[in-house]
């Protein structure tokens, strides 16, 4: 499965400034592991204790993975995985 991943500004220093990268995987977690192999250090920005960070939004196409199966969400060829840090504050 070839998946397009959209990288937010804040993580682009880790992906040689690329905004879109292609990674293969059957599940969201495969894609994150695949990214970690190519761009070490990215995984810890996205995942902690087996779940996506609370303030990192991950979407498959238009769907927030929190409302699917989280990191176990299955992917289909051509899916777009978008990473957006939550905009939040106090």
């Amino acid at each position: 499965m070839s998946i397009t991943v959209i990288i937010p500004t804040i993580l682009r220093p880790l992906t040689n400034d690329q905004k879109r990268i292609s990674i293969t995987g059957y599940k969201v977690s495969d894609v994150i592991n695949g990214m970690e192999q190519q761009y070490p250090g990215i995984k810890e920005k996205l995942v902690s204790e087996g779940n996506a960070h609370r303030f990192i939004n991950i979407y498959i196409n238009d769907n927030d993975i929190r409302f699917c199966d989280g990191l176990s969400t299955h992917l289909q060829d051509g899916d777009v995985l978008t990473i957006l840090p939550a905009v939040a504050g106090g």
Binding site: F55, D62, D64, R66, T82, L84, A86, A88, G89, G90
Partner: peptide, 19 residues
């Protein structure tokens, strides 16, 4: 968050607006 001391953009609206 609908809070007096915290805010967080609705993730679904954020995706839509960012796209």
């Amino acid at each position: 968050a609908k809070s007096e001391t915290f805010f967080q953009f609705d993730p679904q609206q954020q995706l839509h607006v960012w796209k």
